[in-house]
Amino acid sequence: MSDYKKPLPEIQPYSQPFWDGTKKGLLLIQHCNACDANIFYPRRDCPECWSQDLGWIKASGRATVYTYSVTYEGVEQKFVEDLPIILAWIDLPEGIRMHTNLVECQPEDVAIGMEVEVVFRSITEDITLPFFRPV
């Protein structure tokens, strides 16, 4: 039984491949076979064309920082050990944006437009979360 106290995603049928991927060190992005849209977050219906013919592509794992913030105060107790937290919103070359934490760097090292790459951290038996670090 994990003693991890922070929020963890609930695995749903249509997001299962994403979490199976992260466990294997792969960043998988949902792809619509009908209209070719890449979709994030994973869901049952394509938000572009409503098709349910959805598959998965392997992302490069690279991204650039669109914007970020550095949290110093005002988190729940269980996140205090992580302060300061670098929350970033990153652009993937696959045409999607996702939220993440930038890790293995200091706040002063971060800038908009900088290149980052995915790094996986195993949290529990079921969940491996993707984070990003400077290239």
Binding site: K6, P7, L8, P9, E10, Q12, S15, F40, Y41, Y66, T67, Y68, S69, V70, T71, G74, V75, E76, F79, D82, I85, L87, W89, M98, H99, T100, N101, I112, L129
Partner: peptide, 29 residues
Amino acid sequence: SSSGHPLFEQPYGPTVPAYYALIARAHMD
């Protein structure tokens, strides 16, 4: 922080000020 997406935002420790800070920095940039 529960305003964040439960699967793809909340695991990263977001706070409402942090979200608005993302907006502020994007506007500055």
